[in-house]
Amino acid sequence: MKSGVLLRLAQLLLLTSVIGAWYVLTETEVLPPFFFGKPLLVFDQIVVWFADRSIFPHLGITLLETLLAFVIGTSAGLVCGLWLALSPLAASLLDPYVKAFNSMPRVILAPIFAVWFGLGIWSKVFLGITLVFFIVFFSVFHGVRQVNPIWVASAKLMGGSRFKLLRYVYLPSAMAWVFSSLHAAVGMAFVGSVIGEYLGSASGVGYLILQAEGVFDINAVLAGIVLLTICALLLDWVVTQCERYFLRWQPAASEHSG
């Protein structure tokens, strides 16, 4: 417990010293403030955004895109992962295409999605989905293939149909794999929305950052980045809480050795 508090303090100290160094270096103009911004001005910018409420529509749009990409991408990844893992024929048929899509730099799809789905939220959502999907898909796919065959045999002898096996054995054991991939997926969902907004939109935090960049307002760019980071951390925290609840059956890490 005590070492936990100390750790938090040390983490806080690290953050303040980095910001402090940034403050000192830019105030003394060792680093040109024009390119590196100033921490206080970044902070001011965030306060202004919230004070005049101008940030809310942008933040709302970005969060909506991110959440949609996250939820749809994760569900699709889970369903396809289960399907391909349990159907060897489909898996071997689709294997080269899955690999091809996964190794393709998917950010390059953003302009195509903009043409297909317009400049609204859906082009961003689809970009996010293509990023989130593969992370979840691969971990579920490999996870299900490693399900203990004894659990499957045992459920079969209890009279389990394919559907019952899915419900009682495969799906719950895939959950552990889903959660391990969700932390990475959160970040990717944000990447999808922000890149999408960056490449063509009329709202969203990515759009704000692009606008600020256009007028060399580095402080507003940094303020946008800080805001996105905080949102990503919050979403990651929510994932951690869900993980704790759904995976409460797992032994704590320290018990493994015992």
Binding site: N148, I150, S154, K156, L157, Y168, V169, S173, L247
Partner: peptide
């Protein structure tokens, strides 16, 4: 598969969740 049979396996067969 013979569902008349109960099977006690050598290794752990309990579902951990």
């Amino acid at each position: 598969v013979n569902t008349d049979c109960g099977y006690l396996f050598q290794s752990d067969s309990l579902l951990p969740w």
